[in-house]
């Protein structure tokens, strides 16, 4: 079974849903305007372009990282319309007119956001590849707690939320750091949240 079916499967056989024969599709180009880090950017993109690749490959905003391209690591986290999302799992064309903040819009080397400065102070990174995603998430997580959005570890769904280490750990769990800087990241975020570290 394996050999024969593997051959067939690699041959881009139509999936269960569709019955179209093998076809060589032309890219479909679409115009899209995004407001990225406060700047309007007009692009003409293949509809298949993810928001992540629009930023990295078309706008050369490479701060957002591609760790898995499947929503499994969080390295691509951006803040879109005020909310953090995995930019690898959304199409750029779905964000016509949207306000997008990438790590480049959070702060710059000579003008660091307090979260970036706290990551440096607490060594909340090692190789640096997950770091922009961690920081975008970190900024958004503190806002989510402030906005009263509960989490898996919130003991009482109807009580006022606190910034606790457990809340930070749970909410940051969509951002994988294989270097294992978690303990330091929590300290950086705790400091930014204004609680004693």
């Amino acid at each position: 079974m394996v050999g024969a079916s593997a051959t067939a499967a690699l041959a881009a056989v139509p999936s269960a849903a569709g019955a179209a024969p093998v076809s060589i599709d032309k890219p479909v180009l679409t115009k899209v305007s995004l407001t990225v880090n406060g700047q309007r950017r007009d692009l003409e993109l293949d509809t298949r372009t993810s928001l992540l690749d629009a930023a990295r490959e078309h706008l050369h905003l490479t701060g957002s990282k591609k760790g898995c391209d499947h929503g499994q690591c969080g390295a691509c986290t951006m803040i879109v319309e005020g909310r953090r999302i995995n930019s690898c799992l959304t199409l750029a064309v779905m964000h016509q007119g949207a306000e997008i903040t990438t790590i480049e819009g959070i702060g710059q080397p000579e003008n660091l956001h307090p979260m970036q400065a706290a990551f440096i102070k607490h060594d909340g990174y090692q190789c640096g590849y997950c770091t922009p995603g961690q920081i975008c998430s970190g900024v958004a997580v503190l806002a989510e707690i402030k906005a009263g959005i509960p989490s898996h570890v919130t003991a009482d769904l109807n009580a006022t939320l606190q910034v606790t280490e457990a809340e930070i750990r749970e909410r940051m769990s969509g951002n994988i750091c294989r270097c294992g800087a978690y303990s330091n990241i929590v300290e950086a975020m705790t400091e930014v949240a204004g609680r004693p570290v």
């Binding site: 929503g71 969080g74 986290t77 909310r83 953090r84 999302i85 995995n86 799992l89 959304t90 998430s137 958004a140 997580v141 989510e144 509960p150 989490s151 898996h152 919130t154 769904l157 109807n158 909410r171 769990s173 969509g174 951002n175």
Partner: peptide
């Protein structure tokens, strides 16, 4: 939902990640 259907809130919050739940 939090008050009357807490099991639904809890199930949602147990799933995926904050980024994915936002989308």
């Amino acid at each position: 939902v939090r008050k009357d259907y807490a099991v639904l809130s809890r199930a949602l919050l147990a799933g995926a990640s904050g980024q994915l739940r936002n989308k």
